[in-house]
Simulated assay, not measured.
Amino acid sequence: MAIFRCSKCAHLREVGSDYIGKAVKCPKCEQVNRVHDTLIFIKSLIHKHIELSRELKGIREVASDETYENKLFSDIDIHNTNALSEARNLEPILQWFEGRNIQAHINPGAADTTGFFDEISLLMGNQFSVLNVVSNQIKYVQNKGYDNVKIDLSKKTRQEIQQITSFCKALYDYSFVAKYFYDKKGGLVRLTLQKAAKVRDFFNGIWMEWFALIKLLELFSEHKIAPCCTRSLNISFSDGRSNELDLFVLTEKNIPICIECKTGEFRQDIDKYLSLRKQLKLDKSQFVLCVFGLSDEQALGMTSMYDLTFVSETSLASHIQTLL
């Protein structure tokens, strides 16, 4: 037997096998259609059903991923998670660079907050004007190859002394230093440094990347949004040039944001960052230079002078929020 089905009015009827392949008019609407072999027609319907089922499954998986992402920044402890190290967070970033013929090398553990790097970096960044004397002295001493740090508190206010000693105690509690002693009478804090490479790198500037990452995670969590982000990303261009990006973010609208963290002398690197922004083909607002200790007036002035966006540690989150 054969099947006649009208593509216009959906009229369906069974006809004799001698009509297979013939074009006939629909008895209801007169639309011309071909008659199909019943077996072939059924197989075609089954194939379409399978394809539709696959599409529906894909939609469910996307919905599941969206549910996961929304849950990612609303239900987890951002200070104690390795969720950012999972493939579903990193794969969109890799694809973004691949689409621009840029090779990206990601260290998944760079955004693992299960350690204490994030907690200490927040203390350092949120109280930067006071605690930078500690981080600068640690960096100076360890780069000289020494282990013992002395911090003079004799000219500090009572509040500054409380902040510095509390911070140094936290360094000891979290094992960032091997020893901590506060000589209250002499007005000195004495620290014995750890020699572990990760701790040395942290005080050499990695702490700023951690601070920026956690500030963004706090922002994302507050607004229940789930961009993809990672830290310490190495990229290589087709011409052989390579760079390290301190922080890279892809928003939910697939808008890329690159954040570079600096303190102290940064002006000599402005040309380098201008060139990098052009290579990445990012808008001015999407390439952010976060300079710790920068005043609002300085940030505004330099942003107007250069094709880069300058922010401080206090204005970073508010600028990123304008891009989300």
Score class of each variant (00 low, 15 high):
M1D: 12
A2Y: 00
A2F: 02
S7R: 13
L12S: 08
L12T: 13
E14C: 01
E14W: 02
V15C: 01
D18G: 04
K25D: 11
K25R: 13
E30H: 13
V32F: 03
N33Y: 01
V35W: 07
H36G: 06
S44D: 15
K48N: 12
I50G: 00
E51H: 07
L56P: 02
V62S: 14
S64C: 03
E69Q: 12
N70E: 11
K71F: 07
H79K: 14
E86F: 06
E86G: 02
N89A: 02
L90F: 02
L90V: 03
G99R: 05
G99L: 02
I106M: 09
I106W: 02
D112Q: 05
S121L: 03
S121W: 01
L123K: 07
L123W: 06
F128D: 06
V130E: 05
N132D: 14
N132M: 04
V134L: 00
Y140A: 09
G145D: 02
K155C: 03
E160Y: 01
Q162A: 11
I164N: 02
I164C: 00
L171A: 05
Y172C: 13
Y174R: 08
A178T: 12
Y182T: 00
D183Q: 02
K184S: 14
R190Y: 14
N204W: 00
I206H: 08
E209L: 01
K224P: 09
I225E: 09
L233E: 05
I235P: 05
S236I: 13
F237D: 14
G240R: 11
R241P: 03
S242F: 04
L250E: 15
T251F: 00
E252S: 13
E260T: 07
E260W: 02
F266L: 11
Q268L: 12
D269N: 14
I270K: 10
D271H: 08
L274G: 14
K284D: 07
Q286D: 05
F287H: 06
L289Q: 02
F292M: 14
L308A: 06
S312G: 12
S315W: 00
L316G: 08
